[in-house]
Design a protein around this nucleic acid. Structure first.
Lengths: 341, 341
DNA sequence: CATGTTGATGAAAGCGCTTGCATTGCCTAT
DNA sequence: ATAGGCAATGCAAGCGCTTTCATCAACATG
């Protein structure tokens, strides 16, 4: 019995009349021990209600069976689906996920990475590519494998699992253009240190350029991913003259805000204003009108990230880059501009 | 240098010309070492870039500075705010949160608790009270403190931080009654193993009883917390004759579903049907119409749970029961029944 | 001046596990 | 019959840290 009153490997070994090494093998490499011996050990394990002390195991084996993820926030539903999938996949393989949040602050992200590293995680999942080099250095110096999720950019030198935010935003914008809109505003997320946000802006801008249009302030505004903030900004955009007939948003939460902000001004979506979002979270199909948005393979990304990371952890394999496709989901919030516009 | 190439306590001790005990004290009880000594040690720590190995620390000190939480799911926004607050509060005190999910399955919850316990968490946060006694036994046998969140029930024998779901649902229902509704349906969450869900049903039933009304199948239906499922059930309820003029939902996601389901039948909320929810998540004020719901102190509960748990961990204090108030938030989805009803 | 007292430090014994190497017994090939 | 090989097991050395107890110097006390 250990100090804490729990049975230890040693207790099991003694009761089963074998060495601790054998018990350890029963647990970690069952086929390296004779079936009869194993049976005896397993019985004792059951009788004593033995559970291995994972701290001790981690110390001895230099492996924690833990991976960490740092996401911007848990409050928004944006990362929820992917995170859940990541966790499910990991937990199915006996790995525990440690979730930390950065609140979109690069310093805090670096801190969290440090903490995770101190905890000895076997691997790390990070959102997006943009972050100070120092954060990457932390990981590399330590030799801890990591994968980036949610972005896939042509020139990214790191293993990643994501999609092309820019291309997705471009094709979203093109749909808007195809509907006949010419005066287009955009409510973007804060782009500093957020490549998803800035790529989406870039994509929209690209599409507009293609039709000889510009996207500049004050028709382009950045704000936090919150309904309220976005509703407020939408009202500002809609007071501009000429007033935009469509607002492209950085994500669905902002789109919901834009619809609300417009309504506060007596403008109905999509009759007076078209609004489109990004991410296709549950919210997007719960609003009225439902939001036209970009469907993102949340779950598949989560699962793929888990698999890739585990592969890297297990075998020191190089790590690859996996790209997913996205698609525009047409819903009611996008229509042609009003006739009088 | 350790095998993994990282500096160890020993390296620091050697470079600073002190014993490992002293270095350890510098880290854990700085005032128990002379300032000059401490300064020297701290410098070496910085030079070497030393970070303590937390597995080793956990093993030696029998304390992991980790607490675990098992929530039903991360996919829904219901637990997101509380969880984030819990995490922020813990992390401000140097404690890491380990999040596990049960998918509303008691067996899985027990498994997750087992895993957390094996990881040596110092404390555990669980949602609600209803669960097999075996799960509680796991915790008690091990002597790991735990607190329940999201419910506060008069007879609960465990430390908890929550609110009275039944009373809250009752007063929500009373508002509905006060508006003049008499034919009321309810879309509840799955009540099996979910005290929040069943308490809410009980509360609504109580309120109706108080006015001489009943709440029974088929006017009471249970379903998962998803927009789609709830929309489908709503259509069933609305095909009953007499048709309900109000639907009380187990949470906001279901309310969003009900509104959508009604609309699919050509019924507008609140003109033809009133709908109310519970929890006041972001979704509730993003829908059209915005949902009348019960505001729950997500963040305060999360924070309080963290504080209580840490108090219990630190001092073997008994653990208390903390009750929060809720309030009905009136929004557009609740109105008087249609005149012709 | 002898005797406590106090504060700072070090020596060393673990914490519970994994794992490289040694040992044992048995089977097969010669 | 003998050597060689192999599978199963045990021995014991750590993994990197905390913590008890002992040591020692410096100082206050009577």
């Amino acid at each position: 019995m250990s100090a804490s009153g729990l049975p230890t490997l040693d207790d099991v070994a003694r009761h089963a009349g074998v060495s601790t090494a054998t018990v350890s093998r029963c647990l970690n490499a069952p086929d390296r021990v004779r079936p009869e011996t194993r049976a005896r050990v397993e019985q004792v394990v059951a009788e004593l209600g033995y559970t291995p002390n994972l701290s001790a195991r981690a110390l001895a084996s230099n492996r924690t069976n833990t991976v960490g993820a740092v996401i911007p926030t848990m409050e928004s539903a944006i990362f929820a689906l992917g995170l859940q999938a990541l966790q499910d996949e990991l937990s199915a393989r006996g790995v525990t996920l440690l979730v930390a949040t950065s609140h979109y602050d690069p310093e805090r992200e670096a801190d969290q990475v440090r903490t995770l590293l101190a905890r000895g995680v076997d691997g790390v999942v990070l959102i997006g590519e943009a972050r100070p080099p120092a954060t990457y250095k932390l990981l590399e110096d330590r030799g801890t494998p990591f994968v980036l999720v949610w972005s896939y950019r042509g020139d990214c030198p790191y293993p990643c699992v994501g999609f092309d935010n820019r291309a997705a935003a471009r094709s979203m914008a093109e749909q808007v253009l195809d509907r006949g809109h010419r005066r287009i505003g955009m409510i973007a997320g804060i782009t500093a240190g957020n490549d998803r946000a800035s790529d989406r802006v870039a994509g929209v801008r690209e599409a507009l350029h293609g039709r000889g249009l510009e996207l500049e302030e004050p028709y382009l505004a950045e704000t936090a991913y919150s309904v309220e903030a976005s509703a407020a900004i939408a009202q500002t955009l809609l007071s501009l003259s000429p007033r935009p007939t469509a607002i492209i948003c950085g994500n669905d939460v902002q789109a919901a805000g834009a619809i609300r902000g417009a309504r506060a001004l007596g403008l109905e979506t999509p009759r007076d204003l078209s609004v489109v979002g990004f991410d296709d979270i549950e919210l997007a199909s719960a609003t009225t009108p439902e939001i036209t948005t970009v469907r993102v393979p949340h779950r598949r990304m989560g699962r793929a990230a888990a698999q890739l990371l585990l592969r890297m952890v297990g075998s020191d394999q190089p790590g690859e880059r996996i790209e997913f496709e996205t698609a525009v989901v047409e819903r009611a919030s996008l229509a042609a501009p009003p006739a009088d516009a």
